[in-house]
Design a protein around this nucleic acid. Sequence first.
DNA 1: TAAATAATTTAACACCGTTAGACAAAATTA
DNA 2: TAATTTTGTCTAACGGTGTTAAATTATTTA
Lengths: 199, 199
Amino acid sequence: MGSKERIHRLKENTKVNIINAAHEIVKEEGWQALSMRKIAEKIEYTAPMIYEYYANKEGILLELTKKGYLLLGEKMREARDKYETPEEQLDAIWLAYWNFAFEEKEYYQLMFGVQVNCCVIEDLLPIESTPYGIATKPVMTLMGINDPEDDRVCTKYYTYWSIVHGLVSINIVRKGASDEINRQILKDAITGITRSLKS
Amino acid sequence: MGSKERIHRLKENTKVNIINAAHEIVKEEGWQALSMRKIAEKIEYTAPMIYEYYANKEGILLELTKKGYLLLGEKMREARDKYETPEEQLDAIWLAYWNFAFEEKEYYQLMFGVQVNCCVIEDLLPIESTPYGIATKPVMTLMGINDPEDDRVCTKYYTYWSIVHGLVSINIVRKGASDEINRQILKDAITGITRSLKS
DNA sequence: TAAATAATTTAACACCGTTAGACAAAATTA
DNA sequence: TAATTTTGTCTAACGGTGTTAAATTATTTA
């Protein structure tokens, strides 16, 4: 009665085929193009078959999310284990995170709720009305620079923006840390960057 | 022949009605619930009517994005104008940005491509396999703390994560700064936070 | 009032996720 | 082996989506 096992293995196999098909479609055409019917086509079945393996589309997304976290964890651990000192390890860990985000962009988008947004609007507004224009002005004052396109200004703006946007995003897609901790992080980061402008 | 104007004004009016209806629906039920038919119902028309005013659904999203940027710009400028020194202004500007993100969450999500993600997966994995577990270990070493749930560790983790995730997100939804600038920001931020652990 | 124009709706298309029921193949039982 | 049950798979359908073409109604113009 080893055939039970064989059949179980076969079922397991199409289960991963489904996941792989989904991942392929997303890599080729993006998340908005992923549909049950398209997955079915890829594995040469009809759409309802998939429901024998996953409760629904969200079940497939959940599975992919899991795979993503596993993969990210691996990469971060591998990176860390190449170094001895905690300082170097931290560098390596977050660089691995950074690289994962772009090498496995589709996973990253799913795991952390990052859309491929439609349209850039900022260019249509006068610069002094844009977040960039507003937030770089005091930066320029502090750094004694006049050109808002200067790389040093740009760098600082993106540093501010990244930390605030990152913290916001984390707290929008899921409750991140507590409110006090968020305030603390925000305050520390902003004053930290501002201090760095004057040196 | 002032009726031309009156009619034009009326058309302008339903155009903003459409936008307002869309915004209301999103505030009530979230982005995934926004549909042309639902907008139509809200303004007591049928769906195809909307296409007399906007080319398609994306046109509506674009308009809302514009409104969002305008509103954000206002808030940031208002905040800045309450202070004199650039230091205080930067604090105020980014606090205004932060507040906007949560007060106008729907706008923020649209403008910056932040999804309301489905599911948290981290809790299912053993802590030493999660990004949190991996990245906090060297932090704990450097800070001389043993409890991974200690607020000081948590704060530092979220600081790292926020800056990296923020920078990643910005570069995924749209090309942000140049590659060199991104590298610079990443490197500076990481080493900056790491330095702060030891003091 | 009749003709022309504008405003609005109905009906349809092609897609989506999902479910119920039919059907054939395989496995199990008698 | 024959009959029966179970399993795997598909067809057809439901209600939803964005969008378009055509028909219809209302309004303005001649």
